Simulated assay, not measured.
Amino acid sequence: MLCPKIKKKMDVNINDSLKCVPSHAGGDKYQVEYGPGSQYVVDLVKNSCSYRNSDLTGIPCIHALAVIYLKDEFPKTYVQT
């Protein structure tokens, strides 16, 4: 279970992740495009994104969430405690 503030942030990120276009880049890495000229690398095994926001907050960013949904997994399992 997530606390209300984290759940609210996750809900906002999930809605924004619909604007991302993820594609497999080889191995465990994915390339995510967000708008013109914005590309990020996501590695779910390491819980990292080149955007670096999720590294600071422990909450998956919109790029990571796009990959999580592409892989048909549950976002709550990627929230760091």
Results as ranks from 00 to 15, higher is better:
residue 50 S to P: 06
residue 47 N to H: 12
residue 10 M to K: 05
residue 66 A to W: 01
residue 63 H to G: 00
residue 63 H to D: 05
residue 32 V to T: 03
residue 18 L to V: 13
residue 32 V to G: 02
residue 21 V to A: 10
residue 47 N to S: 11
residue 49 C to G: 00
residue 31 Q to C: 14
residue 59 I to W: 03
residue 13 N to Y: 12
residue 63 H to T: 01
residue 41 V to W: 04
residue 11 D to G: 02
residue 17 S to R: 03
residue 15 N to C: 11
residue 39 Q to M: 14
residue 57 T to Q: 01
residue 52 R to L: 12
residue 44 L to W: 12
residue 28 D to R: 07
residue 57 T to D: 08
residue 58 G to T: 07
residue 58 G to P: 07
residue 9 K to E: 15
residue 44 L to Q: 05
residue 43 D to S: 07
residue 41 V to H: 11
residue 50 S to H: 04
residue 60 P to D: 08
residue 62 I to K: 15
residue 54 S to R: 08
residue 56 L to G: 02
residue 44 L to T: 12
residue 26 G to W: 08
residue 55 D to Q: 15
residue 37 G to N: 13
residue 8 K to P: 06
residue 35 G to W: 01
residue 48 S to H: 13
residue 32 V to N: 02
residue 54 S to M: 13
residue 44 L to D: 05
residue 36 P to N: 09
residue 21 V to R: 15
residue 18 L to K: 14
residue 66 A to F: 04
residue 50 S to D: 00
residue 22 P to W: 05
residue 35 G to H: 01
residue 62 I to S: 10
residue 63 H to Q: 01
residue 40 Y to F: 15
residue 18 L to W: 12
residue 61 C to Q: 08
residue 36 P to T: 12
residue 13 N to P: 04
residue 63 H to L: 01
residue 50 S to I: 03
residue 12 V to W: 10
residue 26 G to Y: 07
residue 22 P to T: 01
residue 59 I to T: 15
residue 30 Y to L: 03
residue 44 L to V: 08
residue 9 K to C: 09
residue 46 K to V: 11
residue 28 D to F: 06
residue 47 N to I: 01
residue 49 C to S: 03
residue 23 S to M: 14
residue 57 T to I: 06
residue 53 N to C: 11
residue 30 Y to I: 08
residue 60 P to Q: 00
residue 51 Y to R: 07
residue 47 N to A: 08
residue 11 D to L: 03
residue 65 L to W: 07
residue 48 S to V: 14
residue 27 G to L: 02
residue 32 V to I: 00
residue 57 T to P: 06
residue 36 P to D: 11
